[in-house]
Protein backbone atom coordinates (compact mmCIF):
# COMPACT_ATOMS: atom_id res chain seq x y z
CA UNK A 1 0.00 0.00 0.00
CA UNK A 2 1.27 3.45 -0.83
CA UNK A 3 2.41 5.71 1.89
CA UNK A 4 0.60 8.81 3.04
CA UNK A 5 3.70 10.78 2.13
CA UNK A 6 2.77 10.30 -1.52
CA UNK A 7 -0.10 12.79 -1.26
CA UNK A 8 0.86 15.58 -3.64
CA UNK A 9 -1.75 18.10 -2.59
CA UNK A 10 -1.07 20.50 -5.45
CA UNK A 11 -1.55 17.84 -8.05
CA UNK A 12 -4.69 16.44 -6.42
CA UNK A 13 -6.19 19.90 -5.92
CA UNK A 14 -5.64 20.57 -9.61
CA UNK A 15 -7.39 17.36 -10.59
CA UNK A 16 -10.28 18.34 -8.32
CA UNK A 17 -10.34 21.92 -9.63
CA UNK A 18 -10.07 23.32 -6.14
CA UNK A 19 -8.03 26.44 -5.41
CA UNK A 20 -6.52 25.94 -1.95
CA UNK A 21 -4.83 28.59 0.15
CA UNK A 22 -1.34 27.80 1.50
CA UNK A 23 -2.93 27.41 4.94
CA UNK A 24 -5.49 24.93 3.61
CA UNK A 25 -2.79 23.00 1.81
CA UNK A 26 -0.69 22.69 4.94
CA UNK A 27 -3.63 21.77 7.13
CA UNK A 28 -5.19 19.27 4.73
CA UNK A 29 -1.83 17.65 4.02
CA UNK A 30 -1.30 17.09 7.70
CA UNK A 31 -4.86 15.92 8.43
CA UNK A 32 -5.11 13.69 5.40
CA UNK A 33 -1.68 12.33 6.18
CA UNK A 34 -3.10 11.11 9.49
CA UNK A 35 -6.17 9.65 7.83
CA UNK A 36 -4.03 7.94 5.21
CA UNK A 37 -1.71 6.48 7.84
CA UNK A 38 -4.76 5.06 9.54
CA UNK A 39 -5.94 3.68 6.23
CA UNK A 40 -2.62 1.91 5.71
CA UNK A 41 -3.82 -0.92 7.93
CA UNK A 42 -6.16 -1.99 5.10
CA UNK A 43 -3.04 -3.28 3.39
CA UNK A 44 -2.92 -6.04 5.97
CA UNK A 45 -6.26 -7.54 4.97
CA UNK A 46 -5.98 -10.64 2.81
CA UNK A 47 -8.21 -9.88 -0.14
CA UNK A 48 -6.89 -12.54 -2.51
CA UNK A 49 -9.72 -14.11 -4.44
CA UNK A 50 -12.25 -11.62 -3.05
CA UNK A 51 -14.58 -9.93 -5.55
CA UNK A 52 -15.00 -6.17 -5.14
CA UNK A 53 -18.43 -4.92 -4.05
CA UNK A 54 -19.51 -2.09 -6.33
CA UNK A 55 -23.17 -2.25 -5.35
CA UNK A 56 -24.81 -3.24 -2.11
CA UNK A 57 -26.92 -5.78 -4.02
CA UNK A 58 -25.97 -7.53 -7.23
CA UNK A 59 -28.73 -6.83 -9.72
CA UNK A 60 -28.17 -6.60 -13.48
CA UNK A 61 -29.96 -5.16 -16.50
CA UNK A 62 -31.84 -2.32 -14.88
CA UNK A 63 -33.02 -0.27 -17.81
CA UNK A 64 -35.97 1.54 -19.34
CA UNK A 65 -37.63 1.20 -22.72
CA UNK A 66 -36.71 3.82 -25.28
CA UNK A 67 -39.79 5.98 -24.93
CA UNK A 68 -39.16 9.72 -25.00
CA UNK A 69 -40.87 11.83 -22.37
CA UNK A 70 -41.01 15.60 -21.99
CA UNK A 71 -38.06 17.15 -20.17
CA UNK A 72 -37.69 20.53 -18.57
CA UNK A 73 -38.98 23.66 -20.30
CA UNK A 74 -35.99 25.82 -21.21
CA UNK A 75 -36.97 28.42 -18.58
CA UNK A 76 -36.83 25.78 -15.84
CA UNK A 77 -33.61 24.37 -17.25
CA UNK A 78 -31.96 27.78 -16.98
CA UNK A 79 -33.69 29.08 -13.86
CA UNK A 80 -30.59 28.61 -11.71
CA UNK A 81 -28.04 29.66 -14.33
CA UNK A 82 -25.49 32.19 -13.04
CA UNK A 83 -25.26 33.67 -16.56
CA UNK A 84 -27.20 33.00 -19.73
CA UNK A 85 -27.66 34.40 -23.21
CA UNK A 86 -29.84 33.30 -26.12
CA UNK A 87 -31.21 30.45 -23.99
CA UNK A 88 -27.72 29.12 -23.44
CA UNK A 89 -25.43 28.96 -20.42
CA UNK A 90 -22.76 31.65 -20.72
CA UNK A 91 -19.23 30.94 -19.51
CA UNK A 92 -15.97 32.80 -19.95
CA UNK A 93 -14.57 31.98 -23.37
CA UNK A 94 -13.31 28.42 -23.57
CA UNK A 95 -10.02 28.27 -25.40
CA UNK A 96 -9.60 24.90 -27.04
Amino acid sequence: MSSARDLDIDHVAKLARLALTPEEKAKFSQQLGEVLSHIEQLGKVDVSGIEPTAHAFPVVNVWADDVARPGLPVEAALQNAPAQRHHMIAVPKVVE
Partner: peptide, 18 residues
Protein backbone atom coordinates in the same frame (compact mmCIF):
# COMPACT_ATOMS: atom_id res chain seq x y z
CA UNK B 1 -29.35 7.58 -19.42
CA UNK B 2 -32.66 9.42 -19.22
CA UNK B 3 -35.86 9.51 -21.22
CA UNK B 4 -35.90 13.07 -22.49
CA UNK B 5 -35.96 13.06 -26.31
CA UNK B 6 -32.74 12.81 -28.31
CA UNK B 7 -32.76 14.97 -31.42
CA UNK B 8 -31.02 17.37 -33.75
CA UNK B 9 -31.94 20.89 -34.75
CA UNK B 10 -34.14 21.73 -31.77
CA UNK B 11 -34.12 25.14 -30.08
CA UNK B 12 -31.28 25.51 -27.59
CA UNK B 13 -31.62 23.69 -24.27
CA UNK B 14 -35.06 22.29 -24.99
CA UNK B 15 -33.92 18.65 -24.81
CA UNK B 16 -32.80 18.65 -21.18
CA UNK B 17 -34.01 17.36 -17.85
CA UNK B 18 -32.48 17.04 -14.37
Amino acid sequence: FTRVAAGYGHAENTLTDP
